[in-house]
């Protein structure tokens, strides 16, 4: 074994982790901005956020390439192998988080001119929880913290419950006030996007546990 090449490998792996960390920051920013644009009916922010989300695509592509390169050149094993495979998996989740944010922004663009409906408050509450899950999942990954990752299942249950509530109440609202149907139906879509965002964050948490401990655990 050549010590010199291995040093280079671990330096490259550190650089790669930093790039992934950078990607997580952008994703978190995009997720937050998308919901803010919806609640504030801010089309300018929505457009900016959609554009920002495209950076995530590029990062996903670059990171995947780097992972392939490290696998091909160094044939890593054990924790190094698990880290790279985890990165390959979670960049897909990160990309989906950004995609759902773009979908939320689309809803902002469709509905910014309409009178707000009361479900938007529920979306706000739901978002509060999704934000926590996403933030903690990314923190667990970056700080190699499987214990933190394990705690996210309960929060995800709360999000699922809120999702059902938004649908139920939304249906009521639409029944009572047909003029609200367009906005409310779109908000029901948003609640689905948020629910999926939480699931992707949980995937990241589960992968983090595998990366650090080598044990597979599904968080949901």
């Amino acid at each position: 074994m050549k010590v010199t090449t291995r040093k280079a490998f671990h330096e490259e792996l550190e650089d790669l982790k930093k790039t992934v960390e950078n990607m997580t920051q952008i994703v978190l920013e995009v997720v937050r901005a998308s919901v803010r644009s919806l609640i504030n009916q801010d089309t300018e922010l929505a457009l900016k956020t959609i554009e920002k989300g495209e950076e995530v695509d590029l990062l996903e592509f670059n990171i995947e390439n780097k992972c392939m390169e490290l696998l091909a050149l160094y044939q890593p094993v054990a924790v190094d192998l698990r880290t790279i495979v985890t990165i390959v998996k979670i960049i897909v989740d990160l990309d989906r988080l950004a995609d759902f944010s773009a979908d939320v922004c689309q809803v902002t663009l469709f509905t910014h001119h309409l009178q707000k409906v009361r479900e938007i408050d529920k979306i706000g509450i739901m978002y509060g929880k999704v934000d926590t899950i996403v933030r903690l999942a990314l923190k667990a990954f970056i700080e190699n913290d499987p214990e933190l990752a394990k705690t996210l299942g309960d929060l995800d249950d709360e999000v699922d419950k809120l999702f059902v509530k938004v649908i139920e109440e939304g249906i009521e609202t639409m029944k009572n006030d047909p003029s609200s149907i367009y906005f409310t139906a779109n908000l029901i879509l948003v609640s689905k996007y948020l629910e999926r965002m939480a699931d992707h964050a949980c995937n990241i948490a589960g992968r983090t546990i595998y990366m650090v401990t080598g044990k597979r655990k599904k968080i949901h």
Binding site: M1, H10, V77, A78, V79, D80, L81, R82, G214
Partner: peptide, 14 residues
């Protein structure tokens, strides 16, 4: 993939 001992991990990962 998932060595049980820290020493193994340190050795095989260089």
């Amino acid at each position: 993939e998932t060595p049980e001992r820290k020493e193994t991990e340190d050795y095989i990962t260089g």
